[in-house]
């Protein structure tokens, strides 16, 4: 039985003058899933989020949240959604406690109910020691937690997070994701934009937007099996060696090598299935790289997006 659909976009389009920021994007997000929305800067990620939150009017197409049209019934969705913007917009003059109380009241909460939600969120985000601190003195990680608590005070069914981990240290990032999984297990739908591939790997579904168009959308494991990612007669190799950028130059234009990208201390190659390992070792030896560890790998999400973007650009020309 298919899960209940929470977010649904149909050919959603946003034009600013002659510039099309979002071009006919269609996808749907099931209730309780974590949807990772990826794409380079300026590709239209934030514009999609802002249309879904009712901050921007779509130029064409439709978007529905829990069945309500975002453009025509904005008041029906406001209580259903929470939004955490890129800037963690908080009131710097207000303390942690006051920020939460303010957002609670904004959603019509008061009295014992407000106190209960406040205490729950403080416990969940471990903000107790900072209750009387002003938001202005909090560090990035704590600001992010507070912003998240504020966007959750009214118990939304869908939480939109626009690059929630930008500029946050790795520990805070890990803890935020732990929280997200917890919310997801309680049935909350999460819509997260991110730049980090490791975060994308943790999502139950991902969408990749490039040049205003949705290139692909689906579950990460499924995407890695796509034929365009694994062209017939090819294999993916991880080559770990010294001077990896020099090595990359040595092999990338050789016959039989279709793609080469650096990943930290190694490079990922897409080569003909029949390409002998020794061929690569010889090429590397020619540039004085005599030690190389070569092993076959499965495609990563990044490989998926690189392949799909290249395919998309090629198809467009």
């Amino acid at each position: 039985m298919p899960a209940e659909t929470m977010i649904e976009c149909e050919r959603l389009t946003k034009r600013f003058g002659h510039f099309t920021a979002v071009d006919g994007v269609s996808f749907s997000v099931a209730k309780g899933s974590i949807f990772g929305f990826l794409g380079p800067n300026g590709s239209g990620k934030s514009t999609v989020i802002r249309m879904l939150c009712g901050l921007l009017e779509p130029s064409a197409g439709q978007a529905r949240i829990a069945g309500f049209d975002v453009a025509r019934e904005p008041d029906r969705i406001k209580n259903l959604i929470g939004y955490m913007s890129q800037k963690f917009s908080l009131y710097d003059e207000l303390t942690v406690h006051e920020n939460l109380i303010f957002y609670g009241r904004l959603y019509g909460l008061s009295g014992a109910e407000l106190t209960k939600r406040h205490d729950e969120l403080i416990a969940l985000t471990h903000l107790e020691p900072y209750l009387t601190r002003r938001a202005s003195v909090l560090s990035g990680g704590w600001r992010q937690r507070l912003a998240m608590a504020c966007s959750l005070i009214h118990q939304p069914s869908v939480l939109f997070l626009d690059e929630p981990t930008a500029g946050i240290d790795p520990v805070a990032r890990r803890e935020l994701w732990d929280l997200l999984f917890e919310f997801s297990s309680r049935g909350m739908t999460l819509f997260v934009t991110t730049h980090y591939m490791d975060e994308a790997e943790r999502c139950s579904h991902v969408g990749y937007i490039h040049m205003s168009k949705l290139v692909v959308c689906g579950d990460p494991d499924h995407l890695k099996q796509l034929p365009v990612v694994n062209p017939p007669g090819t294999k993916r190799l991880d080559v770990t060696c010294d001077h990896v950028t020099v090595g990359l130059q040595a092999v990338r234009h050789e016959r039989g090598v279709h793609g080469a990208t650096v990943f930290g201390q190694s490079m990922h190659l897409l080569v003909d299935a029949g390409l002998p390992e020794q061929f690569l070792r010889d090429k590397l030896a020619a540039v004085n790289i005599h030690q190389a560890d070569i092993r076959p790998i499965a495609p990563s999400l990044e490989d998926v997006f690189v392949a799909l973007t290249a395919n998309n650009d090629g198809g467009g020309k």
Binding site: G54, S85, K87, S89, L90, L106, Y107, S151
Partner: peptide
């Protein structure tokens, strides 16, 4: 400028 207006606009205010 601070972006808090956006936060207000997504609320039922």
């Amino acid at each position: 400028e601070r972006g808090t207006l956006e936060q207000l606009l997504v609320s039922p205010l």
